[in-house]
Computed example of a mutant assay.
Amino acid sequence: MIKVVYPGTFDPPHLGHLDIVKRSCEIFDSVVVAIAKNPRRHLLFSMEERMDMFRRMVECLGDKVEVKGFDGLLVDFMAREGIKVIVRGVRLFTDFEYELQIAMNNYKLAKVETVFMMPSQDYIHISSTIVRDIASYCGDLKGLVHIYVEEKLREKFSCK
């Protein structure tokens, strides 16, 4: 049985993230979405809020997906969970360059492998930064985020 981890801050989670999880479920036996606390970044949502939103997004996938939070090094979380493979979504060459450095260091630290996946063409243009920017102006989020995430963003930015 191959269990993988899909890590990130997911602030907020969007349909590109869901696409990677769905496609990972088709390849691997189970996926743990690992949501980083990441105190070094100024985040819009708490770890608990991000976990709640992601859990709502993946309800349709049943017990193949777990959503967990973590603080600290990803490889330490993976060791506790008994996972040896990371799935990372990459949209652009600049994403790949950064992700490759992280993958190489994770392998050096703990001999974990990283599998890179490109989002489907329908979602390759979406990023959490863009979603936050659109939401901050109460813009249309249709096709970018799950309806529950949209509700939470509208609440956060006091949009009607």
Rank of each mutant, 00 (worst) to 15 (best):
A103R: 08
N38W: 02
G69P: 06
K37G: 08
E113G: 03
S127G: 06
R132P: 00
V90K: 01
V67D: 07
R132H: 03
E49V: 01
V58E: 04
P119I: 04
Q101F: 08
A79K: 15
F70A: 03
V112Q: 11
L61E: 09
Y107R: 14
T94W: 02
V75P: 01
M51F: 01
A110E: 07
M78K: 03
L100F: 13
S46K: 06
R40Q: 14
V115H: 04
K68M: 15
E49R: 01
T114L: 09
K37H: 14
E99Q: 10
Y98I: 13
D71E: 15
M47A: 14
Y107N: 15
G72C: 11
V65Q: 06
A79D: 09
E150Y: 05
M118C: 12
I126A: 04
I86T: 12
L109M: 15
L73H: 06
L141D: 10
I134S: 01
M57K: 05
N106Q: 05
V87G: 05
F93G: 01
I83D: 04
F54V: 10
A110W: 06
K152S: 08
L74R: 07
L43N: 15
R55M: 12
K111L: 07
R41P: 00
I83H: 03
V75A: 03
G62K: 08
E66G: 01
D71W: 06
R41E: 12
A135M: 01
V87I: 15
M118Q: 09
E150H: 09
D140C: 04
E97K: 13
R56P: 01
V75I: 12
L92C: 07
K142F: 01
M51E: 14
D133H: 11
F54P: 05
Q101D: 12
L144T: 00
K152D: 01
E59C: 08
E81F: 02
L109F: 14
S136T: 01
I102A: 14
R56W: 02
G89D: 02
K84W: 02
Y123Q: 05
V131M: 01
G72D: 11
H125T: 07
F93W: 07
M118S: 13
G72M: 13
G89Q: 04
V67R: 06
D63H: 10
L100D: 02
V67P: 05
R80V: 02
K64E: 06
E97W: 01
E48Y: 02
K37C: 02
